[in-house]
Design a protein around this nucleic acid. Structure first.
Lengths: 347, 347
DNA sequence: ATAGCTAAGTAAACCGGTTAACCGACCACT
DNA sequence: AGTGGTCGGTTAACCGGTTTACTTAGCTAT
């Protein structure tokens, strides 16, 4: 465990200068360093077990070969809520490594609210940033680009910025089309209470989709649905406790698979069956969707595709062709995975 | 987007030397720099929006404040298989960030087989490494410590090394005790075919646990069970196709929750019900276990606890107190989560 | 008066690479 | 003989911090 050898040690051992060693090992000296010297250097490097020091390298090249990945890591929220985000993270890691870069994790909120922590981000240790679910007007989305840091927003569409997202509208449309084809005409939407009904893409798409199908949009059927307990009053149970059965929805689109799980519970609490009485469709296609009972029909987001798009985008931005000025956007296709939570509605 | 200010710029603006600025900003100059100078420096730094360059800092201090996390990221394996690993990763990230360190991701196999990529690891960009499921005799486990890199093995108990793992034996014992209490006496074990029955802790604990309970160990009831399709011949189905019903197991311990899902399918293929005919217990408690049908009784590994132990261990190793020589080991407690996949066996 | 100490700060080396600029030798050509 | 070009390197600056060793002024103690 003696001190690690440096470029200079190798240079001395090979009887050449640091420059020659650097050029040889980096491959930049091709057609400048004759092979006889090359061999000498290589032999010396091998004998000393030389390994370039990554930090020094990064400093000299002004490039770290690292992609920052900013995400929310909250220990108080059940990990189950984050199954999709975790899959996406894994996919991002995979794609980043494919390019020979290493992903480095940064925490998003609530720290990012403070201006003091920004130095921890744009400090040269990462060449670009991938932001998962960034606040559109947040510190990071505004400050990092200002400092010349390429930034890619993931799962959030931000005007004027680079972003990658799934085509939520297509997913909702496919869900509605599937339900319509089965014969459903009374369709509700359930989302957690922190989702803004007025603005979010999925809810907007839901309304527009209904209209396009010639179905009425009932605002009282767009409801909040949180984890068990607090959902009774404002929640979904009310939809099905209507006196006249003809007034109940026959299908529910859920915000995501986790919400769909809550919907399952609440529907059953009303004594109804899935899918005989009510059909349910989720979003994301997390692993649990497949093993739910009944297996959940859901819109699958292709995390590997999204990850590849995001990392590609970062690499393009880093390659520094001036074209990197215009914002790049990618809307990834989604797939409706039809399982057993959807069926023809009861007569 | 003009060039980022450096220490020297701040020094010039404040009319002092680089050293003074560095000392002031790092806090090391306390009781050396009078507050009047301090204020001048701070004001200059604020005006210029100075942010120390992390890479330069790391080079100078010979410490990067980064923890390397080495894990397997294989795009060809369904992400569903990795739910537990993903949760553990998230927990590791969280705990690492808590210490003001950033996690950096490295790929494990199959790359790690080659000696050429080691430079990418021990190159000064990470101060220590957390290895998820490392090969006990692999390149990383042997080489990194040799180079003076602290290494923590996670989910794998390696002699002479630092490691953190769950108490698998306790988990198996709790499972067996639960089944025994319900009245089960014929218990099988199912694991994927890449698990070595002879050596792995869980299987060993299974055998020993049966003996301790006075139950017979039937090697033909310790079976392989892979994803659908290839499991028919060597698999679990055979256990239940025995002519005499009295010869069938009444309960199955599964390698993990994913395997338990396969077991569910195969048991049902034989026309048996869970838990009425056969009880099933998993391991890990991934999100899907809760929503399975029936909800799976399983041994929960406390990922946050494991992560904290691992990161603590890394920090201790980095703090450099000589005591870091002896290997540290932590066996984390687990909890049997009793749901609805276990019941009294049929008479 | 002078050695000795402290407070306040600085110069310069250092970390370990990358890279721009330069240099000497040798050869070819005019 | 002089000019220019290529080959095969080298020197030294640089990246942006940290840290060691040293300085200088002012004060005290003897």
């Amino acid at each position: 465990m003696h001190k690690r050898p440096t470029l200079e040690d190798v240079a001395f051992a090979a009887g050449v200068s640091k420059t020659t060693v650097s050029l040889t090992l980096s491959g930049k000296g091709i057609n400048k360093i004759p092979s006889v010297t090359r061999e000498r250097v290589l032999a010396a490097a091998a004998k000393l077990q030389f390994r370039p020091h990554g930090v020094a390298r990064a400093l000299g090249r002004r490039r770290a070969d690292v992609l920052g990945v900013v995400c929310t890591l909250n220990p108080f929220v059940e990990l189950a809520h984050h199954a999709f985000e975790q899959s996406l993270l894994s996919a991002l890691f995979y794609q980043t490594l494919e390019y020979g870069y290493n992903p480095m994790i940064y925490a998003a909120s609530p720290i990012s609210a403070s201006k003091d922590v920004l130095p921890r981000y744009a400090d040269g240790r990462s060449d670009a940033f991938l932001l998962l679910y960034p606040e559109p007007a947040g510190m990071l989305m505004t400050c990092l680009p200002e400092m010349g840091m390429p930034v890619i927003a993931i799962c959030r569409q931000i005007d004027g910025a680079n972003w990658v997202d799934s085509d939520h509208t297509a997913g909702i449309d496919a869900s509605l089309a599937h339900l319509a084809e089965l014969g459903h005409r009374r369709i509700a939407y359930a989302a957690p209470s922190d989702v803004d009904f007025a603005s979010h893409g999925r809810v907007v798409a839901f309304r527009e989709g209904l209209l396009r199908l010639g179905l009425p949009v009932r605002e009282d059927w767009i409801v909040h649905c949180d984890s068990e307990g607090q959902s009774d009053e404002s929640g979904i149970g009310r939809l099905f406790s209507s006196a006249e059965n003809a007034e109940c929805p026959t299908a529910v689109l859920a915000w995501n698979d986790f919400t769909a799980g809550e919907v399952y519970k609440l529907i059953r609490k009303e004594g109804l069956r899935i899918p005989e009485d009510v059909s349910v469709i989720g979003f994301d296609d997390v692993p649990a969707a497949r093993v739910a009972s009944p297996p959940l029909t859901t819109v699958r987001q292709d995390v590997m595709l999204m990850a590849k798009a995001a990392v590609d985008m970062a690499m393009t931005a880093l390659s520094g062709t001036a074209s990197s000025e215009g914002a790049n956007c990618v809307l990834c296709p989604v797939n409706l995975i039809i399982r057993e939570s959807t069926a023809v509605p009861a007569a």
